[in-house]
Amino acid sequence: MLEARLEQAGVLKKVVEAIKDLVQDCNFDCNDSGIALQAMDNSHVALVSMSLSHEGFSPYRCDRNIALGINLNSLTKVLRAAQNEDILTLKAADSPDSLNLVFENTERDRSSEYDIKLMDIDQEHLGIPDTDYSATVVLPSAEFQRICRDLSQLSESVTIEASKSSVKFSCSGDIGNGSVNLRQHQDLEKPDQSTSIELVEPVSLTFSLKYLVNFCKASALSPTVKLSLSTDVPLLVEYKMEAGYVRFYLAPKIGD
C-alpha cells in the first residue's frame, strides 16, 4: 500500500497546477523511491516528467509499485479544498480503485477527507536519453514567464539564442517583431535573480510559445528555471523543488 504524508499540501497543488493544462489523465507511478509521472500532451509535442522523492514525505511508505491513474481535473477539484499549509496524507491500496486524501490544518483541529476515483490509463513511457546540452541557462522563473507572455502577444514562436554572455529571445509576427536580451549577471544579494549561462557552443533554436507559456504555470514551484538547449534536440525546461522536480521537454520547430 501507499501512505505518504506531505508537510505542505501546497507542493502537490502547485505540481498539479503546473501540468493540468498540458495533460488531462496520467498515471502517478509510486514506488519505494517516491512518486513520479511522465506524460505527453495530446499532440505529442511536449512531455512532462515529474518526480517527488520519498525524502519529501514523512513518513513515506510504498512497498509495491502502484500506478495511480488520475484525471487531473478531478484532482484539482479535490485539492482546492486544501490550504497550501495543510498537511496532506495520500493513501492507496495495492490495487486501488481510489486514492484517499486527508488534509489537516497545522493546528490539527480540522481534518478533511476525500476519495478520488482512479482510472486505468494505458500510458506508454518514453526513454529520455542523457544529453550533454550545448547551452544551459538559469534565470528567474518570473522573468522567463514574463518574456514568454510578452512575446506570445506578437508571435506563435520564439527563437532562443544562447551565446557566451547572453541569451536572446526573439520573435516576429504580423504586427512586428520583438526581442528580449538577458545578459549573464550574478546578483550576490538575491542569487535567485541572477542569470547564468553555461555554454559549450552557441545555439539558436525555435519553439512554440503556446507550450512555453503553458510550462510557465510551474513558476510557483521555484524562483528559478533552467533551460537546456542543443541543436535539433527538445528543449528542457526544469523547475526544481526541494525534493524533486518538474521537467518539460518541448520538440523544436524545424525547417526554414
Binding site: 526513454g127 527538445p234 525547417g255
Partner: peptide, 14 residues
C-alpha cells in the same frame, strides 16, 4: 515556415 517536430521522434518508446 518552420514545422513543429514531435517529441516521439526524439524520445523512443521504452
Amino acid at each position: 515556415k518552420k514545422a513543429q517536430g514531435s517529441i516521439m521522434s526524439f524520445f523512443g518508446k521504452k
